[in-house]
Amino acid sequence: MSGNGNAAATAEENSPKMRVIRVGTRKSQLARIQTDSVVATLKASYPGLQFEIIAMSTTGDKILDTALSKIGEKSLFTKELEHALEKNEVDLVVHSLKDLPTVLPPGFTIGAICKRENPHDAVVFHPKFVGKTLETLPEKSVVGTSSLRRAAQLQRKFPHLEFRSIRGNLNTRLRKLDEQQEFSAIILATAGLQRMGWHNRVGQILHPEECMYAVGQGALGVEVRAKDQDILDLVGVLHDPETLLRCIAERAFLRHLEGGCSVPVAVHTAMKDGQLYLTGGVWSLDGSDSIQETMQATIHVPAQHEDGPEDDPQLVGITARNIPRGPQLAAQNLGISLANLLLSKGAKNILDVARQLNDAH
């Protein structure tokens, strides 16, 4: 009898209710805020589980004197976190989706994509230029951005401005803007500013005609071990179906173009009346040469937790077992079709030249 009692006690200790789920994140304040929001949602869904947040620095956090596009290494903000995932030191990792490459290392998958916040870019102005827009900034004003995508589009749109690289986390960039006289304004992701509670610093939100956004911008991705079915089931509740389908289309477009950090590629997606609209573009580094096109596809946005595919093969690095396969494939095909259209119009040449120029500098 006593033996059975011990077995029952052991089973209770090993039951999922007692389990601590370890969540990996970057150390920056924004990353911690984003991770806290994901953990809060998981806690609400699984009140019996405990969650421990483990923060670590990544290569991208450490190399702050070089433009991201020049470092010449993929997975700048993800490699150390993936290493911890691989060694079973954490069970899942919360990322900004735009930091996750469209091809993940073997053994990993994006197990959830959370509801997207505003994906557009924002302009934050130096205190002396508050009330201005990019259009009304004085001639030769210097605007800071760490992104080739932003610089290429904005140089084309605002030729009277000069664009220079600015690195560091959000706090560091804002301090550089406010305390030094080098920059009249800087460009940042609206979602990051909003998550930090800095709505009052948003001086201008850039519309798609001015600057399309990065693939996955404004959404959070939760990376897990691809074979860890328990954790895949656990994080599945975080999937937002519309965000998922938009981001599958965007990531398929980028992957098929073979774009990345070192080339200016941008997108804009919208879901309306059962249609998914995808606009994508590529630019030369100075913005003088560009190709942009829009395509659409009829896609039914499923309700969360309709029964999805059981075999769960990944699409552009994403596993969404609780979302039907048909809409996911339709979104992926839309991204591939748009990429093929741009490639047929000469996108590869623009991107190759951009890559060579970026590598040469």
Rank of each mutant, 00 (worst) to 15 (best):
V202T: 14
K70V: 13
K74S: 06
V282S: 05
L177T: 07
T133H: 07
V224A: 09
L188T: 10
T294C: 00
E293V: 07
V103K: 13
V265F: 01
G308Y: 02
T102W: 02
E73C: 07
A330L: 13
L76M: 12
S141W: 06
W198R: 08
G131F: 10
L193F: 05
R225C: 11
T41F: 08
E117K: 07
E210N: 13
K62H: 02
I54Y: 12
H305Q: 13
A252R: 02
E209L: 05
C261G: 05
F51Q: 06
E80C: 11
N349L: 13
I187Y: 02
G216I: 00
D286S: 08
R116H: 04
V263K: 15
H268A: 13
T109I: 07
I248T: 05
A44I: 09
S288E: 14
V202S: 06
D240I: 06
I248C: 01
L245E: 04
R156I: 14
Q153F: 00
Q229A: 06
H207R: 07
K79W: 11
Q153V: 06
I71R: 05
K345N: 11
K227V: 02
L278A: 05
T109Y: 04
E86N: 06
H239P: 07
S288D: 14
V39K: 07
S57Y: 09
L329R: 15
G259W: 03
L170T: 07
S146P: 03
F163E: 07
A252G: 06
K176H: 09
V103D: 10
E306D: 07
A189E: 03
Y213A: 01
A266L: 02
S147H: 00
Q275M: 15
G346P: 00
V103E: 10
D307N: 15
E258S: 07
P106H: 13
L137G: 03
G326F: 01
Q181L: 09
M295P: 03
Q180Y: 12
L342R: 01
Y46N: 14
M56E: 12
E89T: 10
F51I: 12
V20K: 14
E242A: 14
T109F: 04
D286C: 07
P101Y: 01
R195E: 03
V130P: 12
P138R: 10
G216A: 05
T319D: 07
T269S: 04
Q275H: 14
A67N: 04
D99I: 00
R201S: 05
Q314P: 11
S37P: 06
R22M: 05
R26I: 00
K115Y: 06
R116S: 08
K27L: 10
H160A: 05
Q181H: 09
P101S: 08
I110P: 01
Q204R: 09
Q153K: 04
I231K: 05
Q229S: 03
P106A: 12
E82L: 07
P138V: 09
G221P: 05
G203T: 03
Q50M: 14
T279H: 05
L170V: 11
R116A: 08
E182G: 15
V38A: 09
F158H: 14
A151P: 05
K132L: 10
V130L: 09
H300E: 12
G107S: 10
P309K: 13
L351C: 15
L357Y: 10
N118L: 06
S75R: 12
L220E: 03
L104Q: 08
K157F: 10
F158A: 10
P119G: 05
P264A: 06
I166N: 08
A44R: 13
I53L: 12
